[in-house]
Amino acid sequence: MSIEDRVIAIIASQALLEPSDIRPDQTLEDLGIDSLGLVESIFAIEEAFDISVPFNANDPSDSAFDISSVASIIRAVEGLVKEQARG
């Protein structure tokens, strides 16, 4: 399973949707994921990829982790996996 598929599976499970219902341009808000759902998704991503996600719930826009859409989250996770595997 690709990183993209795994991230989509995590987001879908949080949104109580099928992975096939998730589109890359959707935001978490579109999917009905609230702030608690977001931190739970980030936790699931950290567990799934064994990475540390730099995300500050006090100021999400200031975080290096771009959560503006499903596609941006996938790109960010791909970047972190590459970076932290190297490190």
Binding site: L36, V39, E40, I42, F43, E46, E47
Partner: peptide, 10 residues
């Protein structure tokens, strides 16, 4: 005990 470095956010 299990040495995990992360717990569930809730």
């Amino acid at each position: 005990e299990e040495g995990k470095n992360r717990v569930h956010p809730f």
